[in-house]
Write a protein that binds this DNA or RNA. Structure first.
Lengths: 120, 120
DNA sequence: CGTATAGTTTTATAATTATGGAAATATAGA
DNA sequence: TCTATATTTCCATAATTATAAAACTATACG
C-alpha cells in the first residue's frame, strides 16, 4: 500500500530535506505553498512573484531558497508564460516523515505510529 | 490520547529540531542513541566517550553537537560518575513528526496519516 | 522590433555553523 | 592529595549559508 510519489530516502536526501525545512524563511515558503496546494495537477501552486508578495521576501532571496528547496525535492515548479508556478511536494514530506520514523527512530518509534492513529 | 512527553511545538522549536537533525554527524549521533535506547528510564543511553568511539568523532566536536542537540531537545543526559550518559528523546521526535504533519502539511497530509497506518 | 514584466543568476558581504587542538573542569580511586 | 579518566569549554580557523542590489534572461504584447 505504497503511496504515489512516496519512496524510501537515502540518508543524504533526508538531510537535504531537513535542511530545506530547517530555516524560518523556507518553512514559511513551504507552508504558504501547502496553503495553496490542490490535489489536482495543474491547478494549485503559486507563482514566485505572489509568493514574494505574500511573504514579503525580496525576489533574489526567494529565488535562492526556492532553488534550495527544489534541489531537496520539497517543491516543484512549472513554467507558465513568464511566471514560474511553485508547488509543495507533499509526497516528499511524506517520505521524510517515514524516514524519520523508520530509519531514524528505528523500531523504537512504534509509539509514534500508535499516536498517529488518533488522527484517523 | 496524548502521548507522554509529546506536545505541540512552536515553530522555532520545530526549526531547532530540524536543524538538529539536518547534519550528517548529528543524524549519526541520534541514530546511535536510538540503537541504544530502552523504554525504561535509567537503563539505556550511551556515555559521550562511547559515542565518540562508536562514531569516531573527536570529543570536542561531539560535545559541540550534543550541546546543539540538547538545546533542540533531541537528546537528554544524566551524569553518572565522571561519565555523561546521553539518550535519544523519542518523544521529541514524535512531537516533530506531528508538527510536520499537522502544522506544515496542514490538512493536506491526511494521505500521510493514511499511509502511516500500514505499519500497524 | 521595443518595452514592460517575471524570474533567475551574479556578486559582494555578512552571519552562522563546523572542526578539532589545547586548556580547563569534574570526579573516581590510589 | 595526587593522578588518571571523562567531558566540556575556549579558541582559532575553515566552510557553509543567507541576504539583497545589480545585472541578466526569457517571454508577452504593442
Amino acid at each position: 500500500m505504497e503511496m504515489v510519489g512516496t519512496r524510501k530516502l537515502e540518508t543524504y536526501e533526508a538531510i537535504d530535506m531537513l535542511s530545506g525545512l530547517a530555516q524560518e524563511t523556507r518553512l514559511r515558503i513551504f507552508r504558504e505553498l501547502v496553503k495553496n496546494h490542490t490535489p489536482e495537477e495543474n491547478s494549485g501552486g503559486l507563482p514566485a512573484g505572489m509568493l514574494a508578495d505574500a511573504l514579503d521576501i525580496p525576489s533574489p532571496t526567494l529565488s535562492f531558497h526556492l532553488k534550495e528547496m527544489s534541489r531537496a525535492g520539497l517543491v516543484y515548479s512549472k513554467k507558465n508564460g513568464r511566471s514560474v508556478i511553485y508547488n509543495a511536494n507533499l509526497a516528499a514530506m511524506n517520505s521524510l516523515v517515514n524516514h524519520l520514523l523508520e530509519d531514524c527512530c528505528g523500531g523504537a518509534c512504534e509509539l509514534s505510529l500508535q499516536n498517529m492513529r488518533r488522527n484517523s
